[in-house]
Simulated scan of single mutants.
Amino acid sequence: MNETRYAVLARDLMEGIGSGKYPVGSLLPTEFELCELYEVSRHTVRAAINQLQTQGLVSRRKRVGTRVEASSPRGGYSHSLATVSDLAHLAETQQRDIQDVRHFVADIAQAKRLGLQPGEHYFCVSSVRIDREHPNAPLCWTDVYAQDDYAEVIEQAREQPGVLIATLIEAGFGRYIDVIDQQVRAVLLDAALAKKLNAEPGSPGLKILRQYRDDSGELIVASETIHPDDRFTLVLQMKRDRS
């Protein structure tokens, strides 16, 4: 699952902005300069700049250029996730703070909601994820589910808080995640969850169910993540099928 050229360019520019290579108030290289520097087309450059604009990092003015407006995405958390590697890279910028671990046998309702097998043994790791630059505004609450056969990764998850549990299972058990199915819906934060996320009770949130599957479609990991609405923007792109 290769990244598109514009996604690679956008990420590189974001890292340059975040590191101070392109400070707030400065101008990015021109489209022509970026084309030459990265050996890409103007279409690729414009798509990358559009992504930065969506995240509130830059503005564009005719005869002026592309001006850096912020050193981090709007609200601190705006991301474009197009590949499995995008999600793994996003995890590297965050800190997992495990709140609870439990083992259970999946009932019919859980199996239907998460894509598990009823009657099978699973574990659930519940955690708060915190962006290192915004420690007082937790990014999300996440419940990660996997079969008990993979339970040894729980301790690894404590030791490696910036690595996805799915990635730990891949590395430790020779599994390969080929695709991630995502379901996104709006929710309201109840009082208990709002307290854990330093958010207002009853405020809107974004709930994402992710199912990590191998190339045969078998479920390896499932996760449910809830974000306060002001801390995460999921940017998706649809491309016309030309066949």
Rank of each mutant, 00 (worst) to 15 (best):
R158M: 09
R96D: 10
V84Y: 05
T4N: 03
K62G: 04
F32P: 00
L27M: 15
R242F: 13
S26H: 10
Q94Y: 04
C124N: 03
I208F: 09
S216N: 05
T44S: 05
T54H: 12
Q183R: 11
R213T: 04
L219P: 04
S41M: 12
Y77A: 08
R96A: 13
E33S: 09
V84K: 03
G202N: 03
D12Q: 12
K239G: 07
C35E: 15
Q147E: 01
A88N: 10
L193S: 10
C140W: 01
E36G: 07
H43F: 12
S216H: 09
L189A: 03
P135M: 07
M1W: 00
P23S: 08
V84M: 03
N50I: 07
G65H: 11
C124F: 00
L219C: 07
F32W: 08
D131W: 05
V84W: 06
V184G: 04
V58S: 04
A191K: 11
W141K: 11
F104M: 07
R231W: 09
R46D: 06
K195H: 14
P161E: 07
A146W: 00
P135T: 13
E155Q: 15
G115P: 01
T44V: 12
S41K: 10
E69G: 03
R5Y: 00
I17H: 01
A157F: 11
E31I: 14
H227M: 12
L90E: 14
P29T: 05
Q117I: 09
V163C: 09
A48I: 04
L234H: 14
T225M: 05
V163A: 13
I169A: 00
S41Q: 09
I220S: 02
D143P: 02
R231P: 02
P161Q: 01
D143Q: 06
V128L: 13
Q147T: 12
R60F: 14
L189F: 00
G162N: 15
L81Q: 03
A151T: 06
V187K: 08
T167D: 13
H79T: 07
I17K: 04
A137P: 01
K195A: 15
D178V: 05
Q94D: 12
A194W: 01
D143E: 14
S85T: 14
G119F: 03
A192H: 15
Q55D: 08
R158E: 10
V40Y: 01
P135E: 10
G65M: 05
L189I: 11
L139K: 07
P161W: 05
D229K: 14
Y212K: 11
E224V: 13
F104Y: 09
G20Q: 07
I130M: 02
L139M: 13
P201Y: 04
T167P: 00
A109V: 14
E69I: 12
Q182W: 11
S223A: 12
G202E: 00
A171D: 10
Y122Q: 04
T66L: 11
T142G: 00
L57G: 01
V235L: 15
S41G: 11
I220M: 01
A111I: 03
D131N: 09
L168Q: 04
M1C: 03
A137I: 12
K239C: 06
S223Q: 09
V8Q: 02
A191C: 13
Q117W: 00
L234T: 06
V101I: 15
N2V: 08
K21S: 15
F173Y: 15
V64G: 03
Q211P: 03
R175W: 08
Q99G: 11
H227S: 06
P29E: 06
L219Q: 03
Y212L: 14
L189R: 01
